[in-house]
Nucleic acid binder design. Structure first.
Lengths: 104, 104
DNA sequence: ATTATTGTAATAGCACGCTATTACATTATT
DNA sequence: AATAATGTAATAGCGTGCTATTACAATAAT
């Protein structure tokens, strides 16, 4: 019993796993939007939207203060996003690279 | 210019669209987990994990107070999840049905 | 009929992420 | 050399989602 077992010896950790599987199962942007709207509060959604937008702008080399003026997100939060973009688990990186060519 | 246009006349709304596209692009649970860990705070992730677990238990017909004892989520929050499960946009429903046979 | 269980609601208090401000060391610019 | 711009940090204040408690109407069980 090491990895990916079908059994139910998880208890707490598998709750997170279940959410991740649910999210990974979302087939398109519409499904994702409806799931998010049921799962999250408006404030949470806005926070996530802001961070993702900031991550994209950081990735394009834009300045903290320029991003702040453009998005109205505080420089503090932008710095936090930047930290995860550099020292995070690479989750941002993967998706940023996937959509890299799409907007140039 | 009604639906799904390639142009950039969105400005604010497309930020949410972009996030939904990013999420929909997540290929598996691991990618989803790493993206979530970069995008969200621990408290946010825990809140989402709790709500999703509660939604599943509600869907199985479990009682508010039983769910509360099992998950240590307050009855107040459980009631809120139930409301979205019934009157929401159907985002919960879609994914619940998709994973319906998986655990019986 | 009574009692217990259930969903629902109102309240107060707490935790946490955001903003705004100010500051400062480092790097560019002039 | 002097000035400006940049990333980074500390602080205080605010909004909001959570918990815990109490309550109550409606249904189920004894």
């Amino acid at each position: 019993m090491k990895h990916h077992d079908q059994t139910q010896d998880h208890e707490l950790k598998s709750a997170a796993q279940s959410l991740c599987e649910a999210i990974a199962s979302l087939a398109n942007a519409d499904e994702a939007e409806r799931f998010l709207e049921d799962l999250c509060t408006p404030a949470e959604i806005e926070a996530m939207v802001d961070r993702w937008r900031v991550a994209q702008l950081l990735d394009q080399g834009m300045t903290y203060r320029d991003i702040s003026e453009l998005t109205e997100v505080s420089v503090t939060t932008i710095g936090r996003v930047a930290r995860f973009l550099e020292m995070g688990t690479g989750g941002y990186r993967t998706v940023l690279d996937r959509f890299a060519g799409s907007k140039t």
